[in-house]
């Protein structure tokens, strides 16, 4: 017999509205301004209200806040970091009371950014589907877009490091025959002897910084240069590599 249902935990990205003021008029005005920047993104979006940053959380009237949010097209689903009283009030209003992980973090604009990231992720990474013997997949902290992945161990020949989001910082050396890739910039503070791919295939603004240029190949947004083409004066030197008029340009740091 088939089970009538499954019950499992699952995580969703839900925008969190962190209030810093309790004045409803100001909040309403700002919220309207925000929504008008991306009306379709926010339409019918579930919303959680974070009361944890308010100097005077007890001043907030949940009832009118709820009305305000609904007016802007949100679907309020819960509150977090409210007072005991507010939590009771929320339950009475059929709102969930949620506990935030790492509740000290600023959650402002989080929803918007994560939405954009989610779109990007679905586009451009067919090659990472393959399972590679010695590939290190880097799991990024979900919360911040700008987060850089920091690797302190040497990356050895045959190893491959792929960073889907943000920058990659390597504090050790990258051996000949190793490959490192990042969606953003790449910094290497040990000697760089392997292959480096910054900006995946599309981020032409990405750059590569290294202390000692011995790389086999450098690439920014899919445009590459092999070691042999490096200017002799820059070999072994600290350099900065970027894309200029669709060509790799290497300049001393």
């Amino acid at each position: 017999m088939q089970q009538p249902f499954d019950i499992k935990g699952s995580s969703f990205t839900i925008p969190v509205l962190s209030l810093r003021e309790s004045d409803m008029e100001t909040i309403g005005y700002q919220l309207n301004k925000k929504v008008s920047q991306a009306p379709s993104f926010f339409r019918n979006a579930p919303l959680v209200v974070n009361l944890g940053y308010l100097p005077d959380p007890e001043q907030v009237d949940l009832q009118s806040l709820l009305a305000l949010m609904e007016q802007q097209g949100f679907i309020p689903v819960g509150i977090t970091n409210g007072t005991e009283e507010q939590q009771q009030q929320a339950r009475a209003m059929k709102l969930a009371v949620l506990t935030m992980r790492g509740s000290e973090r600023t959650q402002e604009e989080q929803g918007e950014q994560e939405g954009i990231q989610a779109e990007k992720k679905s586009e451009g990474e067919p090659e990472e589907q393959e399972s590679l013997s010695s590939e290190k997949k880097i799991a990024l902290p979900e919360k911040t877009m700008q987060a850089a992945t920091v690797i302190t161990e040497p990356i050895r020949s045959g190893q491959r490091v792929v960073v889907d989001k943000g920058d990659l910082v390597v504090l050790a050396s990258v051996g000949s025959g190793a490959e490192i890739m990042a969606a953003g910039n790449i910094h290497v503070y040990g000697s760089l002897r392997g292959r480096v791919f910054a900006g995946n295939t599309d981020n032409t603004q990405a750059r590569i910084f290294c202390q000692q240029l011995e790389a086999e190949l450098v690439s920014v947004a899919g445009v590459y240069m092999v070691n042999e083409k490096f200017p002799d004066s820059l070999r072994g030197q600290p350099v900065h590599i970027r894309l200029q008029t669709e060509r790799i340009r290497i300049t001393p740091l």
Binding site: S133, G158, S176, G177, E216, L217, Y224, V226, N227, E228
Partner: peptide
């Protein structure tokens, strides 16, 4: 594959794309 060396012996390791 995975332990390439021929490019080193042939002296073309810096031209592999």
């Amino acid at each position: 594959v995975g332990l390439r060396n021929l490019d080193l012996i042939m002296g073309c390791e810096r031209r592999v794309v």
